[in-house]
Amino acid sequence: MSLKNIILSIFKKVRQFFELILVTILIYMILLIPDVFLFTGNLNQYTWIRLVLNIIGGGLVAYFGYRYLVKQADVVFERLNSKKVGMSVIIFVITWLFLTFGLPALFEHNPLTGSNQHAIDTIFNHLTNWWTLLLFSFNIVVIGPIVEEVYFRGIMFEEAKPLGRIVQILWPTLMFALVHSPSTLEQWTNYLTAGGVLMIVRVVTKKLQYSIMFHSLHNLVALLS
């Protein structure tokens, strides 16, 4: 390969990486839209209305993200495959055991939650009615996983494809951890593990529906505990 071709190849990769950064920033801004209804102002005022708006906002974000993604690649749904479901469940159990018992043992204490999780816990503690709890749970278990999988393991994963398999896998995993605002090594380990395992499910099954199921189950168990 000539020097000219090498330079052109480098410039091409730099341009593609810059484009990926711009896509990542745009995704981050889009994901902030539903949270505006919950994380601003006094939590004691109009809680159920804010939860409904949060769900509607999240639903719209998921819908438009889905519409964009299906135009790029056929990676969202397929007829349910029992082997892939079983594999996803096994991976979930192993991951849950590690995060519940292995990670605290590794760091000799339970990891402190990041600012993102702290905000969720604060909202949860302000819920006093069963319908607000139901709305909040629906957002955590259904809307949240769909949105995050469509954008991280879906759109961002596909947009990173020109940069090679390593970047395609590592970049969405790192950004998934970063968006949850970890501030300690324990928190980084927690979110990188979760994001990495979700990426494994996505890559092995080749369909988002299984990582969405995995993510929803993870959030449900976390909510119940």
Rank of each mutant, 00 (worst) to 15 (best):
V52N: 01
E149A: 07
Y66T: 06
T100P: 00
W188Q: 08
L53N: 11
F18A: 15
T95D: 07
V76C: 12
M29C: 11
S115Y: 10
M175F: 12
L220S: 13
K83S: 14
F124V: 00
N44H: 04
G154E: 01
I55K: 01
N42V: 11
L198S: 09
Y46Q: 13
S225F: 09
L32F: 10
T100H: 10
Q16W: 03
F101D: 02
I25K: 01
T132S: 15
L51R: 01
V167W: 10
P145C: 09
F17Q: 02
I143G: 00
N54K: 02
V197N: 04
S225E: 05
A194S: 08
S115K: 13
W130C: 00
P111G: 02
Y46W: 11
V36K: 10
R67K: 15
P172V: 02
L32H: 10
Y28G: 14
F11C: 05
K83Q: 15
W171F: 15
Q187W: 00
I94M: 13
R165Y: 09
H109Q: 15
Y151S: 11
N44S: 13
N219Y: 04
R67E: 15
G154L: 00
G41Q: 09
D74A: 14
G102V: 10
I33W: 03
K207E: 07
Y46S: 14
L80M: 13
W131V: 03
V52I: 15
A222D: 03
L220C: 05
V201R: 04
K12L: 09
D74L: 06
L198A: 13
V204C: 04
L99Q: 06
F138P: 03
V141K: 00
V89P: 03
V70Y: 04
R79A: 09
I155E: 01
S137C: 09
V201H: 00
F39C: 01
G114S: 07
I21D: 02
K4Q: 14
K207R: 14
L43I: 05
G65L: 08
R50W: 06
L127G: 02
P104R: 14
G59H: 07
F64Q: 07
D35Q: 12
L99G: 07
L60N: 10
I10T: 14
R165C: 01
K12A: 10
T40E: 11
Q16H: 08
M1E: 08
H215C: 02
P182D: 05
P104L: 12
L217A: 10
F39T: 12
V197P: 03
R67Q: 14
P182T: 06
I90W: 00
V61Q: 02
S216W: 04
S183I: 05
G144V: 12
F39H: 09
F92S: 00
H218G: 15
L51D: 05
Y46G: 05
N116Q: 10
L38D: 04
I55T: 10
R153D: 03
